[in-house]
Design a protein around this nucleic acid. Structure first.
Lengths: 333, 333
DNA sequence: TTGTGTTGAGTTAGCGCTAACGTAACAGCA
DNA sequence: TGCTGTTACGTTAGCGCTAACTCAACACAA
């Protein structure tokens, strides 16, 4: 490995002080245009690249943020991550990716190492931390964006981005009403998931508006995977064979449920209508194509990154974005 | 934000020199067990965490690596990334995730910023760089693992991990032979993809062993997506309606092709048998379930990370792992 | 007793960069 | 002419840590 060119090398070559070179490369005022150009030429020629450690040590700033997700393999988070990464790339930021595996302990550990690395901010998706633990994390990082999670108190260095789950559920129920489906099940996600709780609320409210009594037998909780959807749907169909509409926690669950319905000899959408949430790529790959609440995932990712950059720059702060999903009517309902 | 505790703070509290504290936290010899324990207790109490920049500046080591993939949204890379991240987490490494979007220029830019950050090594997946450009990157990083790409010359700081595409293709063709399918198409991926080239070779070889003449009309090139598979399959079916077996570049392409076949009224697998490659989750979600060459993606990710750690530690080097995929026979062939 | 090695520390210097301050030269103005 | 402000640089100091060296104290063999 070749020794790196340092600021001092450039300074010597240009016969100026290191500070002048520093100002030139950081595009700061305080030197003439000719000299600046000359230095930049030298920088180019000599292949100089600033040392991130030295800079970080001196400025206490990296251009690096942490992205914490439960599982980057899940299309939901993969899409968000992609949006974050794209926006990061455009703004010359780098991102640390960490999976928590839906495990609060691992999440804490991940945030710990990220903090050690002195990152400028964090985008934390679907945190499983307790309110108290989350408060602690929020105050220890310079800037933090929470996706899919809220916090009671506002913080100057915090922005939250949440999907309007409540309305999402109501919109789904309304569509089922339009289709004249009255036996509506909700196959929910993990009980400790916040978006699950909000969707369940919306589901109950939707029933109430339609004056349909709430039947606990029609509400299930499962893992947010196809397999989870399969298991829950099988249990549901045994328990309530008369069900004619299923609102699924997400598209993965919806697809699993749809397949089990078909295996039970129930036609989708004729006998059972199914609606998911998220609109992951699978929704249009599967047949029948999935009717689902479209959530602009990549957009959320980009938004999160941009919001974080503003936060780091001292702008914005204490905002709460609400993302309105939209019903994409396809073939399953 | 609270001021961080530094080594000096601990040193003062313990009434020893900073160096002694440094030795204690880095588990190096040179101090008594009692003192070490006392210092570690203080570290714990005072919530001291070493500053990564300072350490990096002094040692020129981060515990950070870069993971470069074309698109983290693609299940293929998402699975690999997950394996890498898991292994990284276990070994207390952090990973920078970067997408290249299959774009050589963006790949170069990404590697440039990673290099600036002084990372210990890179895992580079499906690089689109030219041989020459790749050689340059290999010599500039301390350690590098290439996934899905080879390099002519060996390097002491390089390990490659490749799937045996050639044999993969041959195994697929053999299975088609067993099924007595003779009109076999290959819907390949991007022409500049190395694995595509190797699979095409294997396809041709397989035909030769079976004494089936090579028909260029049966070979297509497309984007490695469902949509790509759809387009290619539609073109194929118009061109050669008598085709009764399709070897697809990957599972996404296979699924797209499968759906188009069905839409054209061709039953899968009765009239057209289809085999993909990779065995992404979608393969078992879709109906009929996809017969495919199973590639242990998460395992490759873990292997890559472990190999990289060995490389960074000065062990290993210049190895070339060959991953043998396995035919998972399901319902599409 | 002297010499030699080992153990357990401390001291020095510097990694590469930037913030903050210092300063020379010159322009503009009363 | 003297004062103030501005521009264009240079100097100093230090971010927090560790490598490499130094050194004292002690054990032990000859």
């Amino acid at each position: 490995m070749i020794k790196r060119t340092t600021l001092a090398d450039i300074a010597k070559a240009a016969n100026v002080s290191m500070m002048t070179v520093s100002r030139a490369i950081n595009n700061k005022p305080g030197l003439g245009d000719d000299l600046r150009q000359h230095i930049l030429n030298l920088v180019e020629e000599m292949g100089y690249r600033p040392n991130t450690f030295a800079r970080g040590l001196a400025t206490n700033q990296t251009t690096t943020i942490g992205l914490v997700v439960p599982d980057n393999t899940n299309p939901f988070f993969a899409q968000i991550a992609r949006g974050v990464e794209d926006a990061a790339f455009e703004n010359l930021y780098n991102i640390f990716l960490v999976n928590t595996n839906e495990d609060a302990a691992r999440e804490t550990a991940a945030l710990e190492t990220l903090w050690q690395k002195g990152i400028d901010g964090v985008i934390l998706c679907s945190s499983r931390l307790s309110g108290e633990a989350l408060e602690y994390q929020v105050q220890r990082f310079p800037a933090i964006v929470l996706v899919n999670r809220e916090l009671k108190q506002p913080h100057a260095n915090l922005i939250t981005i949440n999907v309007n789950d409540h309305r999402s559920a109501q919109r789904v129920l309304q569509h089922f009403m339009d289709l004249d489906r009255k036996v509506i099940a909700y196959i929910g996600g993990p009980a400790n998931s916040f978006s699950n709780q909000r969707r369940l609320e919306g589901y109950k409210n939707g029933l109430r508006s339609a004056e349909i009594p709430y039947d606990p037998q029609l509400v299930l909780s499962t893992q947010p995977t196809t397999e989870g959807g399969r298991e829950a749907a099988a249990a549901l169909l045994r328990r309530r064979p008369e069900v004619n509409a299923i609102f699924a926690y997400n598209d993965l669950v919806a697809v699993g449920a749809m397949q089990v319905c078909q295996e039970f000899g129930k036609k989708v959408p004729e006998e059972v209508a199914i609606i998911g949430v998220d609109d992951i790529p699978l929704a249009t790959i599967i047949r029948p194509q999935l009717t689902t609440m479209h959530v602009p995932l990549a957009h959320i990712g980009r938004l999160a990154m941009r919001a974080l950059i503003d936060l780091i720059g001292g702008e914005g702060g204490s905002a709460a974005y609400q993302i309105e999903p939209e019903l994409f009517i396809r073939d399953s309902a």
